[in-house]
Design a protein around this nucleic acid. Structure first.
Lengths: 257, 257
DNA sequence: AAAGAAAATGCAAACTTTTGAAAGAATTTT
DNA sequence: AAAATTCTTTCAAAAGTTTGCATTTTCTTT
């Protein structure tokens, strides 16, 4: 190196330094010799590179920084019934075909489903769930987030504002989570704003699938979304009681377990 | 190069300069010798090229910039000029008061600002940035996400769908990021959908603050959002040129640095 | 075609940034 | 703990930039 006839500009030096760093480290003395500049200048260049996040200073030299630290994305709280939820999601996945336009609701039951969507092609995915969106950020599908007020507890976007976007979209199949589920009242949740969003989604969606693990069945929550009539299919696990299966079938709801 | 007997027109020189720059850099002295003109003329040509966004001046020479200006991937951008961005964000923070209703745009310059908002109380924060939303998830403020199509590169929600929510909200102060900034065209970005969202936000916001580090100034990108008239205040770092300060003041834009 | 206006160019003085050297503080090694 | 190395700060010289002005070139107008 250093067949430099003329003085180098700072940017040239910086890229040469990066090249010299390669994968490993270089000392100030080495770089100073290679670039034919004083050590003070090397330090200054290194400082600039560090500000740009391209290199990191260490005592006596510098190291290349590879790919800058990946941002802290949403973290998932380790879940109850994780295995059941995953198997419920697998059943739901079978109803999703290439080119579908689907809605993913919030909730820990829907999240595993979001992770499986790489097996489908060219989906349009509409969601109000920040967690699902974070999962799908890197995917190849088209991703649309409902706007609205952020609800910290469920990490979803809820309330009247969500209505506007929902009403302009055509949703083929909606996959809904829930806090409570009863045959009389259908799905219910703790927050009225969230219930409202669920309701307008269900009303507009072509087909509505409710994913619910058996621990929530028979337990009503505070705010009800729509009625049992808005639901086409309930997808749940094997622990569901035969009595409930019959009740659902009487209400013309398909049930998968 | 250029054994030119007759004198060259400025446009001819400029294209020769661009050719000489190639992908790399050239010094003023080199260019002056190659083109048989004084260094003063080279500087003037380079200045003109810079205004056109085709080259970027650096001390002692110039580098070629590709057009349209490419957008670095998000994680790369995060570390770039990190210190400047933080100090820009600190200046912007002073314009945010308790109970304000503010908009946070996408971009790595706005992100540090999101992190500082704990020092204010009872804000209503509207944003189209997933990263900003992730930062603000735990905060006490009211958080509203614009809906819309998710754009992976910038991790923002963009496009026509965003318009609906923006139009129903009252935004007190909007804090905008940008990929490129020129006095002639104002802020510009790489994606038309993103430009669209920026534009409708700026049009509806009471006051518009643009946060831009000096490396982006004078560099236009592909899709322009609104005009310089939509901007009330530009917040930048100390490296801004006095000339630009004057130009902005002539356009009745307040400038903070 | 000549005179005048406008634009471009080169030059030089004042100013700014960058660079290298040196001194003292901080860190690592022996 | 002493020695050696490296880091930070400061300062002056060198290199680069800006600005105003005189000169040349180019364009317009008569």
């Amino acid at each position: 190196m250093s067949n430099c006839k003329r003085k180098l500009l700072s940017t040239e030096r910086e890229s040469l330094i990066l090249k010299a760093l390669g994968e490993g480290v270089s000392t100030i003395t080495e770089l100073s010799a290679q670039l034919n500049v004083s050590e003070a200048t090397v330090r200054r260049d290194l400082h600039s590179l560090e500000e740009q996040g391209k290199a990191k200073r260490i005592h006596g030299g510098a190291v290349r920084v590879k790919f800058p630290q990946t941002e802290p994305i949403f973290t998932e709280k380790a879940g109850f019934h994780a295995q059941e939820k995953k198997s419920i999601a697998e059943k739901a996945l079978e109803y999703i075909e290439d080119n579908d336009s689907i809605y993913l609701d919030g909730g820990s039951t829907i999240l595993p489903l979001a992770r499986m969507l790489d097996s489908r092609k060219n989906l349009t995915i509409v969601t109000n769930s920040m967690m699902a969106a974070a999962e799908l950020m890197e995917s190849q599908h088209r991703l649309i987030l409902l706007g609205g007020e952020f609800r910290a507890l469920s990490r979803t976007l809820v309330g009247p504002l969500t209505q506007q976007i929902v009403n302009t979209l055509h949703i083929n199949k909606a996959f809904m989570g829930t806090i409570g589920f009863t045959v009389d009242e259908g799905i219910s949740t703790t927050d009225p704003g969230e219930a409202f969003t669920k309701e307008i989604v269900m009303r507009r969606a072509g087909k509505v699938y409710v994913l619910v693990d058996s621990s929530k069945i028979g337990v009503p929550s505070f705010a009800v979304s729509g009625s049992i009539n808005d639901i086409d299919t309930v997808i749940t696990d094997e622990n569901i009681s035969p009595k409930l299966v019959k009740e659902l079938e009487d209400s013309e709801v398909k049930i998968v377990f």
